[in-house]
Design a binder for these strands. Structure first.
Lengths: 181, 181
DNA sequence: ATATCTATTAACATTCTTGTCAATAGACTC
DNA sequence: GAGTCTATTGACAAGAATGTTAATAGATAT
């Protein structure tokens, strides 16, 4: 499947690997075929973004519909977002396209946002929706930053690989403190 | 000055605006001249990154050497980082280059990191250096994510422009709570 | 004044990416 | 079987970004 190949290339080669010629070659087809299916290179990337979004929604739904507490929800949100190629693609678009609307519409689906809002608000005393919003935005933006610059940041900070692995858990542990306070 | 023009283009046109031909045109010179000075397009971007880093260091030093408390330090760190073109450039490199080392070395200077570490640790009870590290990483990564995806995120969340402006202040207010706990 | 070094320029070359097009093959309908 | 539609392909075209080069001009030192 073409999008699976594209996703693999994104993971391995970064954004540069996400061009139609290389993807087509990896998938064993002509790049014209790829264009025929997705209309344009940008269309292919949008399709990939949508696919990754759906996977993310599926994974988040599992947790949101479970008995998991706010800390686990936030931890998983952070983990999933920071590891997802979706984050990279979303960020790259935001950097290249000046157009916020486009990025927003094809980026995080309304569905995911709604589920998150309700799921987190439910787990907060008083169901403070504004607080939920803020915490989600913080979790998401730090996940984006961490997904992109995490390794480089830690290198700059002189932190070990072990500390890198522990950071998401630390975030999942700490952020919920903002709720209880 | 060429780098000033480049910085302006980065702000206005995003990463796409950061190519030698457009910058040269804006600066009123031939693009060959630009290459002559910086060696390569990549060299020009590195020079810009270094310049923006130095400006960031200057601004952060002011606050770190003042009487400001941990909250103000973190708030300013978040504000400066999320608004700086340096963040965009750093993130873009991390997305394009798979090489962490390059990004880290030319990204956040050791000087800034050291100052931050000492400055924040000093403001924490017990001068817990590990806690300082974690909080700085959280502040930086969320600033990166916010700087890149902030507007798109808020649009997805259905938050108003006012709420967007208030978010940095909220972060500056909340993150220090992790210290006191 | 001559030589040397640097800055600048225009024109050209290269490479990468995307996109177009006409031709072909296969499947499916009538 | 003829016709139609879709998928696929190779060849080619277009555009963008970077880089090269030879020529020119200006400054500075000897």
């Amino acid at each position: 499947m073409i999008l699976a190949t594209a996703g693999r290339r994104l993971e391995v080669h970064g954004i540069r690997g996400l061009n139609i010629k290389d993807i087509a070659q990896d998938a064993g087809i002509n790049h014209g075929t790829l264009l025929h299916h997705f209309g344009s290179a940008e269309g292919m990337r949008t399709a990939l973004l949508v696919k990754l979004s759906e996977e993310l929604i599926k994974d988040m739904s599992l947790i949101l519909n479970s008995e998991a507490g706010a800390d686990q929800v936030i931890l998983e949100l952070f983990r999933l977002m920071s590891q997802s190629g979706q984050t990279k693609l979303l960020a790259w678009r935001a950097l290249e396209e000046a157009d916020t609307k486009l990025v927003a519409s094809a980026g995080l689906s309304e569905k995911l946002i709604q589920q998150l809002l309700e799921g987190v608000a439910e787990r907060i005393r008083g169901k403070d929706i504004e607080l939920a919003r803020h915490i989600i935005v913080l979790a998401l933006s730090s996940a984006v930053g961490w997904g992109i610059c995490g390794p480089a940041l830690l290198k700059s900070m002189g932190m070990s690989r072990t500390q890198q692995d522990q950071f998401p858990a630390w975030v999942g542990e700490q952020l919920p403190k903002l709720i209880r306070d």
